[in-house]
Amino acid sequence: MSALLEVNSVSVAFDGFKAINDLSFEIGGQELRAVIGPNGAGKTTFMDIVTGKTRPDDGRILFGEPMMDLLRLSESQIARAGIGRKFQRPTVFETQSVRDNLMMALAGDRSPLAVLRYRPSGGDGERIAALAEEIGLSDQLGRVAGELSHGQKQWLEIGMLLAQDPKLLLVDEPAAGMTLGEREHTTDLLRAAAQTRAVIVVEHDMEFVRRLDCKVTVLHEGSVLAEGTLDHVTANSDVIDVYLGR
């Protein structure tokens, strides 16, 4: 199976500090992957680079079928190419209703003039209803997103990402600040999502990563330290050194 995303020896430095150092990474079309690493390992910067927020100094990033060069695209073009990103802090549009949030996220022509002429079709309504069902917000569609609980906002955001129908989903610390029940729900959502697309989860919480039960990539000082199952990487002596500071 060929890779969906290929990151080839990418480097980026801020004021001399190498946030990402000769990083290479690959993920297939339907795969769930957890990226872990201590603070400052470059996890967020890695996501910034893939989504176009930060331009690398060096390296190549290829994505999709056929492969295209992501470095030529703007953030919104990358998103339209099929990469969705969920930020660490839940960012939904708080002044707008859950339905409007989902409707904006629905895949479709995003050019201003098309959106200006846009009329919601029956199919769109059904799709929103189905997504709401999936993220457990069916009875909240009319509410203003700002009134939702923290966990509900996280789900809404995941729902919005699913509505975009991306080929690759980047999720930054989804479990932060969630109750146990909410975590379980989130795990189910992500694993379900990975059936049809690639999902990369950046996470601190080992327990949550274990629950995901997937291949793990460990980042350290901007490059890949180890890769494999969770048990495999936690047995790796380098990883133990980094995490326990030995």
Partner: peptide
């Protein structure tokens, strides 16, 4: 108006 970066990552040409 509320979050320019977020809507950009949703694919909208802000």
């Amino acid at each position: 108006r509320d979050d320019e970066a977020r809507i950009r990552f949703m694919g909208y040409p802000v």
